[in-house]
Structures are given as C-alpha cells and as structure tokens.
Simulated scan of single mutants.
Amino acid sequence: MSTPAVVPDVVEDIDLRAAPLEPWQVVVWNDPVNLMSYVVRVFRTYFGYSIDRATSLMLAVHHDGHAIVATGPRETMEVHAQAMHEYGLWATVRKAPQ
C-alpha cells in the first residue's frame, strides 16, 4: 500500500462574482450592391426599428461607410451579424470601445 500524499492547507481567496458582460457591436458596412430602400427594409424587418431609426442607420451606412446597428452580448451579436449576411449585407462584430 502506498502512503497518501500530504497536501498542505491552502487558503485562497476566490472571487466568485460573475464577470460583467462586455458589450459587442454589430457593424453594417456600405456596399455597392444593395439599394438604400432594401437596407431600411432589412433593419425594420429584422431589428424591428422604426422607419426613422432604420433610415437614419441606412444613411450612416451610406454616408459614413458603416453604422453600429446593435449592441449587446457577443453571442447575440454574432447571431445578428449572421442574419445580416443572410440578407446579403456586409456585417462584422467588434468589441465595443470602453
């Protein structure tokens, strides 16, 4: 028989609080393919944005080259970006600046 190993008492302070969820963003980028009216319709249909909000975001995409269309947990933003791809829009996910 072997002798059990002696393990010294270890006292560790363990912080069991959950880390805060860091926000992520879905960025939709301008492209030369999709009509502005189509982009507004996608934002209204998928995100449920009002006509004014969807139009404002579409104009930001058109004039600035991109717009942040959603912010939230990473997994959710990845789902949104994939949905934008399925609608034919170019979208990426990035960590929101702190």
Rank of each mutant, 00 (worst) to 15 (best):
V61I: 15
R41I: 02
H66K: 12
P23D: 11
S56E: 06
Y46N: 06
H62P: 07
A18T: 10
A60Y: 01
R44D: 06
F43W: 07
Q25Y: 03
V6A: 13
D64E: 14
A19I: 06
L35N: 13
L35C: 00
G65C: 04
R53Y: 03
H66D: 07
F43T: 08
V40P: 08
M36N: 10
D9H: 10
Y38N: 06
V42D: 00
H66N: 10
V69W: 01
P32V: 08
D13W: 08
R44F: 05
A5V: 13
L35I: 05
I68H: 00
P32Q: 13
P20A: 14
R44Q: 15
R41W: 11
T45G: 15
V7I: 07
F47T: 10
V69P: 04
V33K: 12
N30W: 11
V11T: 13
F47K: 09
P4Y: 07
R17G: 03
V26F: 07
S50T: 08
D15N: 09
R44S: 09
Q25R: 11
H66A: 13
P8Y: 05
T55H: 15
V69Q: 03
V6T: 12
S56A: 14
V27H: 01
A70E: 04
V42M: 05
W29K: 07
M58N: 05
H62G: 07
S2E: 15
L57E: 12
H66R: 15
D31L: 02
D52P: 00
V11S: 13
D9Q: 13
D15Q: 02
P23G: 01
L21W: 02
A54C: 09
N34D: 07
D13I: 14
Q25A: 06
R17K: 10
A5C: 02
G48T: 01
V28K: 04
A5M: 10
A70L: 02
Y46V: 14
M58E: 06
E12K: 13
